[in-house]
Design a protein around this nucleic acid. Structure first.
Lengths: 127, 127
DNA sequence: AGGTTAATACGAAGATTTTCGTAAATGATC
DNA sequence: GATCATTTACGAAAATCTTCGTATTAACCT
């Protein structure tokens, strides 16, 4: 397992778009990003070029434009950021993090039920 | 609820020390930080001065030194970072985050039990 | 009081991340 | 093939974060 690169804030935003939309052009990504605050086209372009150099995304020429695809998986990245948050802010206590997430975000009864099932499953596999 | 300031990486490390040790001098914090890699005293000093300017910590003169205390609570900060992670990486799905944390970090049976109890409690309060 | 030691204040360099302007390249259109 | 619109490439400024060197200040000790 290679030591994975840690995306910056903006890089993560771009990855989000690519994960949800699938492969996309710079133009498409930029449009999607600009929902909150406007951001220059060349800014997004530059970011995506850097991400390409870093191997975070791949790209494929289509006519005169490039189609970019995420090269790191959403789940892996989530896990990595989770680990990071755990280390830096929760002193490694996954339980504390889970409890705070549950308490703070108020999941629905159905969601709680699903989590309960998941816990059952985890316990089942450990006795 | 005030829009809370987002601590940087190093600031968070310093807050960690203050949260676990309680109020401390720059020297003490720096010693504690230097467990992994050495870091210059004046570096830590500068960071803590900046944090003071930002209101992240308070300080009190004791002889010729300053005693610094965390001014933002550990729990609030954790929650804020959690929210942030949720938004930026988990698209707001607290459940997904919880499930990944549980699956990935392999809590003990006792911890799972505790979480289960907590879920019971949450469900109890919502019917 | 003078000298020593340790802390603070200040400024600035270095590193990283984010932003964008300008120029060059590439297709599309007439 | 000249023009136009859009994209890419490149470089560099702006912003933020991290680091530390140097000077100043403050207590302490003979």
């Amino acid at each position: 397992m290679t030591t994975q690169y840690k995306p910056t804030e903006k890089e993560l935003e771009i990855l989000q778009v690519l994960w949800t939309q699938g492969p996309a052009t710079v133009r498409a990504v930029n449009d999607r990003l600009g929902k909150g605050r406007e951001i220059g086209y060349t800014t997004t372009l530059k970011l995506m070029q850097i991400m390409f150099d870093k191997g975070l995304v791949s790209r494929q020429k289509e006519g005169k434009t490039h189609i970019y695809s995420a090269e790191i998986s959403e789940e892996k990245t989530q896990n990595q950021l989770l680990d990071r948050l755990l280390d830096t802010a929760f002193k490694g206590s996954a339980m504390k993090l889970v409890m705070q997430a549950l308490g703070h975000k108020k999941p629905s009864k159905e969601e709680l039920e699903e989590i309960r099932k998941y816990i059952d499953q985890l316990e089942g596999g450990m006795k």
